[in-house]
């Protein structure tokens, strides 16, 4: 039997469906503390492994290198540096964005890892790798204990 070349499954017998499942994720031990600090005190915390002299951000319950339990928290401040960035011209569904969005990996002084977040108050053409930025939080009453409690990072003079 010859193999048919089909580019659109709707042209043949098919069955449509979707997965109607909702998820509710607990934040876990380490991440819960991380987000409560952001929500209540506007602080970005890392977790330090003393053995490896390594600060994880976002924080973890354990060091992935040596497996020690991490109990030492480090206040990283709210300022960081653009490690790399991209400019999104389409959204998650492939629709063109009127205003392109800038997403960056932001690293903090004295910590490994970093946060992926949006950049604001800046045009794509102005963004540079190595640029200093700082977190802009939502007003405290509007914070919910998730990553969007930080509205975006903006350039620091």
């Amino acid at each position: 039997m010859a193999i048919e070349k089909i580019t659109d499954t709707r042209q043949m017998l098919h069955w449509p469906g979707h997965m109607e499942t909702d998820y509710i994720y607990t934040l876990g031990i380490a991440c819960e503390k991380f987000f409560i600090e952001i929500k209540e005190n506007g602080r970005i915390l890392g977790a330090k492994c003393k053995h490896c002299n390594y600060v994880f951000v976002p924080p973890k319950l354990y060091c992935e290198k040596c497996f020690a339990k991490l109990a030492e928290w480090v206040d990283l401040g709210i300022q960081g540096v653009v490690h790399t960035f991209t400019v999104a011209h389409i959204d998650i569904n492939g629709t063109e964005l009127k205003d392109p969005e800038i997403y960056a990996l932001i690293k903090f002084n004295g910590a490994e890892g970093g946060l992926v977040h949006k950049l604001g108050e800046v045009r794509p053409s102005q963004v540079r790798i190595g640029m200093k930025v700082e977190a802009v939080f939502k007003p405290q009453p509007n914070r919910k204990g998730n990553i969007n409690d930080i509205k975006y990072f903006k350039p620091r003079e």
Partner: peptide, 27 residues
């Protein structure tokens, strides 16, 4: 406590749709 929001959580509903072709025998 989870369902009623007394524990911090993140909610998500994946929005993925499928079209399964019936294939040779099943067609």
């Amino acid at each position: 406590d989870i369902r009623e929001g007394r524990v911090p959580t993140i909610k998500h509903r994946p929005n993925v749709k499928y079209l399964w072709s019936a294939g040779v025998a099943m067609s």
